[in-house]
Amino acid sequence: MIVADKKPIEEIIGYVQDANRILILGCNECVTVCEAGGKKEVGVLASALRMHFLQQGREVKVDERTLERQCDHEYLEEIRDIADQYDAIVSLACGVGIQFTAEKYHSRPVYPGVDTCFLGVTEERGVWTERCQACGKCVLAETGAVCPVSRCAKRLLNGPCGGSTNGKCELNPELPCAWQLIIDRLTALNRLDEYEKLMPIKDWSTDRAGGPRKVVREDVQS
């Protein structure tokens, strides 16, 4: 999932300071799972903003709405009839949802309510870690399903480097060395001989090096 973190309330207050009608727009997908932008977080932010403005002597209308997703036209259309009522929309979706909302409601200012962090997993409640950088050319088949692009600080394709000590990365003693994980995994799979093969130079044009990316699937297009 896409992992996001809550933005400080004071930062959001700064964005919407002059607005009189604000819509807090949550998303029921990834940001709900990582507890940054779901229905509950929408309620907390809306309540905090209402109290903040009342404290300043202003009764600002702060409404709450949470969509199934903000990255699909059909769900974003659900606010078509009400979007014009607001001076500002604060989207608690990931950066994708925030931008798509802004594209769809061009005349309304849309502000981010979260900081979008990475593609990751829930290690335990309240702890999320990165697993994928969406490089566009997956190498997991060769690495025992441990990603060196997202989990190695140097993105090494033939590791580990000299900074790997006792299975940890030199960047942080708590950070596992991705290449140690790959070796451990290949050993467990009895495929360590594959570690001997050098990985060829990766085609980074499918990563950000090729600019903004696009996937077109004619087989599913209508």
């Binding site: 400080p8 309330i9 004071e10 207050i13 907390v44 905090a48 109290m51 903040h52 404290q55």
Partner: peptide, 8 residues
């Protein structure tokens, strides 16, 4: 923390 931030 939230109430402190918003001045309540």
């Amino acid at each position: 923390k939230i109430l402190d931030t918003i001045g309540i």
